[in-house]
């Protein structure tokens, strides 16, 4: 992990959606969906982006895949041959060879598979589109991939409707793996699955990473799932990363009051641990009208005068993480209870 060049490094990424009003469609403001986000992912590493809905985690992942055009910033991708390419400004054709190296797993295994295609066609499509191998070679590769995601070969000629949610998600993973990508962007890959199936898919993602050294950018709102898959976690609030730390450090010794509140809100599956929660008042701030100073200050129980006026920046903390809080040094926040 973390050896050599990062697979992906994002610097100063911004995505603003303009708000236009009136007959002349004059620009009256911006929704700052992603506002100056930077991070890097090493080979074989999982970085998770977490936060409440509207925090910009999905927009960030979509910018990286160039499904939306970023407003500013660099998205550097380390290619197989050791070069580094900034994909943020590439044209569609220039982007094409790089697309093979970053693939996506979707949230909804029901709408993300074409119901008219057989499993073999769905998994083999990326190969076909990229002109890799002949029919026989493609079928061999599909068979291999089915084996990797632990689905029987006999399923090859069936259609998606015959499969359960968990099996469909395996099909989606096989398809994402078809081109041997270096990075997989997984946006809520298990949140639509039943608990008993969720565990199977989480384990599969972990196994694949150990086996082929995949890197994951994992976007999720469920902190329990995040704890099971991540090496490092970035917490986002209204378009910005407020804390980035190793999984252990983030859960046990959070440094940002928002992280503390998020952790405190997660229900723990043990009735003997009904804790007194930090219930955050109010709602996530509106990204078109970001509060002054630290965007979290209206909901923060530790906020002081300075938080209302001065925007904090991400600063390194001892132990390796980064936090964006004026009071990071003098606060001692609580994480989740120690494992039993």
């Amino acid at each position: 992990m973390n050896s050599g060049n990062p697979v992906l490094s994002v610097e100063g990424l911004k995505k603003y959606f303009p708000i236009r009003r009136g007959i002349l469609r004059r620009l009256v403001g911006n929704v700052k969906a992603v506002d100056d986000v930077s991070f890097a992912i090493g080979k074989g590493e999982t970085l998770s982006l977490v936060g409440e809905s509207g925090c910009g985690k999905t927009t960030t992942s979509r910018c990286i895949l160039r499904a939306v055009q970023p407003t500013a910033g660099a998205i550097r991708f380390g290619t197989e041959d050791g070069r580094t390419v900034d994909v943020s400004g590439l044209s569609r054709t220039e982007l094409r060879p790089l697309r093979r190296q970053m693939q996506m797993i979707f949230q909804d295994p029901y709408s993300s598979l074409n119901p008219r295609m057989t499993i073999a066609d769905i998994i083999g499509e990326p190969l076909l589109v990229n002109g890799i191998g002949d029919l026989n070679a493609r079928r061999r590769r599909v068979a291999e991939l089915l084996d990797v995601v632990q689905l029987p070969l006999a399923y090859m000629n069936r259609f998606p409707h015959a499969f359960s949610g968990g099996q469909r998600q395996r099909i989606g993973i096989a398809r994402a793996l078809a081109l041997n990508p270096a990075l997989i962007v997984a946006d809520e890959p298990v949140s639509a699955l039943d608990v008993s199936v969720q565990a199977q898919i989480i384990n599969l993602l972990l196994e694949l990473q150990d086996r082929i050294g995949l890197s994951y950018l994992f976007v999720a709102h469920d902190l329990s799932v995040v704890k099971h898959v991540s090496h490092r976690v970035a917490v986002m609030y209204v378009g910005r990363i407020v804390e980035l730390a190793s999984t252990d450090a983030l859960f046990n010794t959070p440094r940002h009051p928002y992280t503390e509140a998020l952790l405190s809100a997660v229900p723990v599956p043990d009735p003997r641990k009904r804790a007194k929660r930090i219930v955050l008042a109010g709602e996530v701030a509106d990204p078109s009208r970001v509060p002054s100073g630290c965007a979290f200050h209206p909901r923060c129980r530790y906020a002081v005068e300075r938080c209302k006026v001065e925007v904090p920046t991400l600063q390194p903390v001892e132990g390796g993480g980064m936090v964006s809080c004026h009071r990071a040094k003098d606060l001692s926040l609580s994480g989740v209870a120690a494992p039993v």
Binding site: T46, V195, S196, Q198, A199, I202, N203, L206, D222, L223, S224, V225, K227, H228, V229, S230, H231, S246, T247, D248, F251, L263, V266, V268, P269, D270, V336, A337, A338, P339, V340
Partner: peptide, 12 residues
């Protein structure tokens, strides 16, 4: 089989 915030990071 339920993931928990109390689990060891990256535990199966």
């Amino acid at each position: 089989s339920i993931p928990s915030v109390l689990a060891e990071p990256r535990s199966r």
